[in-house]
């Protein structure tokens, strides 16, 4: 087939390009611009090259933040993905009011504004007036999320699991519903155990939605800000200060625009790199198996 070459066709790409420019490229370039300058006020700025980057990379507080962030994101994935699959497997399959009810109940946490989620758990987990905190204390466990770092961590994790497992469950549920009944019938005939059905029929067919679920949950948890900010304010000490909170402190707290911009870009690159690594590994595994 002969392709027609006509450079006027580039005009057709222009609207899309303009859109992307305003939504991504221009804001990003502004940050790039900040990251290479030392800004004192509106009219006073000096070009400093990669100095901010070097400083940010050497900043030990940020190292701690980054480590905390990775531990948090991987804990979230390690809990929410299996739990979400389990919930999806246990959900009713018939199309009736019970299924609808379960779906609505499950979707509720997703509808709550993030600020409110933080507030809910801040109250809920208090030892004096919060049902959860009170109950845990009543069971004989010493629990105080405002004073104990581990308690604070567990509370933030629990909150995230409560908030976001439904998303994974709903994604998996839709994936499970897309498996034709014939597969289950054939598996029964082939005397497959419940585990074999999960391992060889359900799990392979959930792969698509699981990739999406892992990516979404990784990105979201890696950028988490509002909920721990409201719940613990990053404390006690710096125990639950994650990357975005460190960034906010730097950018709007100390007004260090240059380092904050450099930090933002590095932050962005980490998210991009991890997602890219994950995605290429998955697609590569797929190809290798064929």
């Amino acid at each position: 087939m002969n392709k027609t070459h006509n450079n006027k066709a580039w005009w057709l790409v222009l609207p899309m390009f303009a859109l992307v420019a305003f939504s991504a490229i221009i804001p990003l370039m502004t940050v790039v611009n900040y990251s290479v300058q030392d800004i004192f006020d509106q009219n006073t700025a000096y070009f400093v090259g990669v100095e901010w980057y070097q400083e940010v990379l050497r900043n030990t507080r940020l190292h701690d933040s980054l480590l905390r962030q990775f531990i948090f994101s991987f804990s979230v994935l390690a809990i929410e993905i299996p739990l979400g699959i389990l919930v999806a497997l246990l959900m009713p399959k018939e199309a009736n009011w019970k299924t609808s009810l379960v779906l609505i109940l499950l979707a509720l946490p997703l509808l709550i504004p993030w600020n409110v989620v933080g507030t809910i758990w801040q109250v809920f987990a208090r030892g004096d007036i919060g049902l959860f905190g009170w109950a845990v204390n009543a069971m004989g466990f010493e629990y105080n999320y405002t004073a104990n770092a581990l308690d604070a961590w567990l509370t933030v994790l629990l909150m995230d699991v409560w908030h976001w497992t439904p998303l994974v469950a709903l994604l998996c549920y839709s994936g499970l519903r897309a498996i034709p009944e014939a597969y289950y019938q054939a598996a029964m005939i082939d005397r497959a155990s419940r585990w074999a059905i999960f391992r060889y029929i359900q799990l392979p067919r959930l792969k698509g939605v699981l990739v999406i679920a892992v990516l979404l949950r990784f990105m979201d948890s890696f950028m988490i800000y509002t909920e721990p900010f409201v719940l613990t304010g990053g404390g006690p000490g710096n125990a639950t200060t994650f990357l975005s909170q460190s960034l906010t402190q730097m950018a709007v707290g100390q007004f260090d625009l240059g380092p904050a911009a450099a930090f933002s870009l590095i932050y962005f690159m980490i998210v991009l790199l991890v997602c890219w690594l994950f995605f290429t590994t998955i697609t590569h595994m797929d190809k290798e198996r064929q």
């Binding site: 019938q185 054939a186 060889y200 029929i201 392979p204």
Partner: peptide, 12 residues
């Protein structure tokens, strides 16, 4: 053992 009208293979 039962063979169905339309093929069912475990594609993984």
């Amino acid at each position: 053992a039962q063979v169905f009208q339309f093929p069912v293979v475990y594609d993984a």
